[in-house]
Every structure is written in structure tokens, then in C-alpha cells.
Design a binder for these strands. Structure first.
Lengths: 116, 116
DNA sequence: GTGATAAGTTAGCAA
DNA sequence: TTGCTAACTTATCAC
């Protein structure tokens, strides 16, 4: 079993590799063989991509939730306004009724007034 | 370049492999070495999964579109009902006004009636 | 070269 | 076993 590689910077953990600043990364890369350099950069890119993908999923889910919430709010609004509408209709009918009665009443008053 | 494998059924196209009935698939599998058998089954599973994944994405997109359309419809409804509401309010105010006038008018009639 | 996203692969759940 | 979906990988695009 031959020594696989120099292992100077290849045994770094995912988390650490991910958090590494560009500056520190370059420092690390310089100490590696060209092959390991490529390998390490590739690994970092994959890790980054994993994060992006997770981010993308989260975003998709929250957007969907927002849509659902907006929809629910609108449904509530519709109900509220429709109810308001019904109330107005009732009041309108009621006052129409009273108006009609008052019309009849004043017609009688007017007629009586002529008999004087 | 040695002959890679018996190639009796391994050179089947993706589409064909995917469409194969279970019966025909089994028939085909029987003519293969255990190794190729496993390989072919695996390939079919992967192809199937590819389809499932596409299906899943399509479904997700259409669900989102449905949500958006429902939301738009609700927005239109809210506008329509709110407008209706405004109309009712105007009519209510108008009739209230007329009612008040009629009240005053009949009050005068009544008063005049007493002077007879 | 970094972040986002569509498409493909893998793992694992459920019927 | 089949279909679905979350997570991961890869390819590709925009900045």
C-alpha cells in the first residue's frame, strides 16, 4: 500500500473547506501538487453547489408557502367583503321599505290637507 | 480490443428498454449472464427514475401555476365585490338622503294638517 | 469564479 | 416492484 498522496491539505473537512476564505484557500492550494489542487478545487465547488441546491429548494418551498398564505388571505378578504355586501343589501332593503311606507303616509297627509 | 460482452441484449436502446413489458423483459434477462442481468435491470430502473423525476418537476410547476391562477382569480373577485360594495354604499347614501327629505316634507304636511 | 436552476442520479419511503 | 420525492450531482447560464 503506497502512500496515496502527500495529504498536506487534502484531509481537510467539508465544513472547513467550505468556510475557507479565498485567500487561505490559495495559500493551501500552493502547497499541493497540480493534481491535488484541481481535486481540492473541484471538491470545494461541489460542496458549494450542494449549498446552493439546498438554498434553491428552501426558496422554492417558501415561495410556495407565501403563495398559499396570500391565497388564504384573499379568501378571507372575499368572505369578509361579501359579508359586508350582504349587510349593505339588508340595510338597503330595509330603508327602501321604510321609504315606501313614508311615501304612502305622506300621500295620505297630502290628500287630507286638500280637504281643508 | 476484446469483445466487451455477449451483447445479446445489452445494446438495446433506452427508449426500447423503457417501453419493454415485464414479460418481454424477463425473456430478455434470461438470455443474459447474471452480471449483465443486474446491469440491465439497473439501467432500466435509472431510466424509469429519470422519467419519474421529470414528472415530479412538471407536477410541481403546474401546481404552482394553479396556485397563481387561483390567486389571480381571487384578486379579481375581491375587486369585483369591493366595487359592488361601493355601488351599494352610494345607493344607500342616496336613498338615505331622499328619505330625510321626505321626512321633512311630511313633517310640514302634518303640521299644516293640524291648522285646519 | 460565484450563485442559481434545470435535468439527471441516488436514497429511501410508501403502496 | 413501481412511482414519488428530497437531497445530491452535473451542466449551464447570468453576472
Amino acid at each position: 500500500m503506497p502512500p496515496k498522496n502527500s495529504n498536506s491539505g487534502m484531509n481537510i473537512g467539508d465544513e472547513a473547506l467550505l468556510q475557507l476564505s479565498v485567500k487561505d484557500l490559495n495559500k493551501l492550494l500552493k502547497s499541493l501538487s497540480p493534481e491535488d489542487r484541481t481535486k481540492l478545487k473541484r471538491r470545494r465547488r461541489v460542496l458549494k453547489n450542494r449549498g446552493y441546491a439546498a438554498n434553491c429548494r428552501t426558496k422554492r418551498m417558501s415561495q410556495k408557502e407565501i403563495l398559499q398564505m396570500e391565497k388564504e388571505k384573499l379568501e378571507k378578504d372575499v368572505n369578509k367583503i361579501a359579508h359586508n355586501n350582504d349587510m349593505l343589501k339588508l340595510r338597503l332593503e330595509s330603508i327602501k321599505e321604510r321609504f315606501k311606507d313614508l311615501q304612502q303616509y305622506s300621500a295620505i297627509l297630502k290628500k287630507n290637507g286638500k280637504n281643508e
